[in-house]
Design a protein around this nucleic acid. Structure first.
Lengths: 189, 189
DNA sequence: CCACTTTCTTAACCCAGGTCAATGAAAAAT
DNA sequence: ATTTTTCATTGACCTGGGTTAAGAAAGTGG
């Protein structure tokens, strides 16, 4: 059973083969085309996601302009703020490529928890991890200039630069595509 | 019993008078002078904090320059990343004013949990709240220009502008004090 | 294979914020 | 009260990113 989902879960908890079978049974997987919007600003998130294959990004639309806040790749869970707060979402989630995604609904989660109560232990652990990475993300952004942020990205997530169009990378770095072009030109020297 | 700490706890849990007495008994409060450093970069955080009176800020020192990431005021808990991850801290925590602070150590927390097991329920709730506010902070920073960030701060936390020296506000907004002066000048018109 | 769209680059010009330096005001120390 | 230090403002000049517009390159679909 080499499902990426078990690879992910093993970071938090060791599962027996029976438990894995239960999860495989309940989980709900969908194939989605590039450009599919998983969550719209103003909508309530009724699902959380786990990426088996492909790439998703989150962005705000402010005065018609896309402001990218995050890229998600294989083996990453996506829990929209709206899913936890039950408030309308402030941002969008969209597939950047054709994706295979495992969808989590409150009902399926409840069923899982009921059949494998131990899974509940994972919640706080995941929250802690997410909080830590969210803080690091903010702090890194604050500390670095756009050019340094590009170098930092190149250093820490080079695969994103291969995979994602530059105008979205630019937005993620807080600048315009033209400026990213210039930064790259400056750096080759 | 109008201790600010109970005011804070009541957001998450209703405590009986006996429970409050237990907490009052265990809790460890200290008065600290302005300028006291609660946590140093490179040090392990052995305590978490709850501000009863005063004001604390967190900052990175990057190439000798202070980069403020947060201000904490009365009734706010401070859980350093280092306290949870058990890794050396990347940033400083310093008292901006004379402070009265309740200090939490792993030992005292364990004692509390043992005497009031129900308190453990608070952990995930607080994590969730912190994660949400951390995300909002990041997203707001990304979305706004320095000038808009100043207006946003004026709108949402006017008391900080009264309380905190401008050169630290500037750093928090990601700009230099001179630029904040100019922004303010621009805005009075 | 070609047309069409999307993405990337370049150039010219503008502007907000950075830098450096001087001055003034306020707070702290003695 | 006076000195010293810290903080805020202002001005002149610099610089990196924004804007606009154009063209080149790379994908995409027919």
């Amino acid at each position: 059973m080499d499902d990426p989902i078990f690879d992910f879960l093993s970071k938090y908890i060791d599962l027996t083969e029976e438990e894995k079978a239960i999860i495989s049974d309940i989980k709900f997987v969908r194939s989605l085309k590039k450009g599919t919007i998983l969550l719209r600003q103003g909508d309530m998130a009724s699902e959380c996601f786990f990426i088996l294959k492909g790439c998703v990004y989150s962005y705000y639309l402010v005065e018609g302009e896309v402001k990218v806040t995050e890229f998600f790749e294989e083996k990453q869970p996506i829990t929209p703020v709206s899913y936890t707060t039950k408030q309308p979402s402030e941002y969008y989630l969209e597939c950047l490529e054709d994706c295979i995604i495992s969808m989590g609904s409150p009902e399926r989660t409840a069923e899982l928890m009921q059949k494998i109560p131990r899974l509940a232990l994972m919640g706080p652990m995941m929250l802690e991890d997410e909080l830590a990475s969210q803080r690091i993300k903010y702090d890194t952004f604050i500390k670095l200039s756009p050019e340094q942020r590009y170098l930092h990205l190149q250093e820490n997530s080079p695969q994103l630069l291969e995979r994602i169009p530059q105008y979205l990378i630019a937005s993620y770095l807080g600048i315009k595509p033209e400026s990213l072009s210039r930064i790259r030109k400056r750096l080759v020297k």
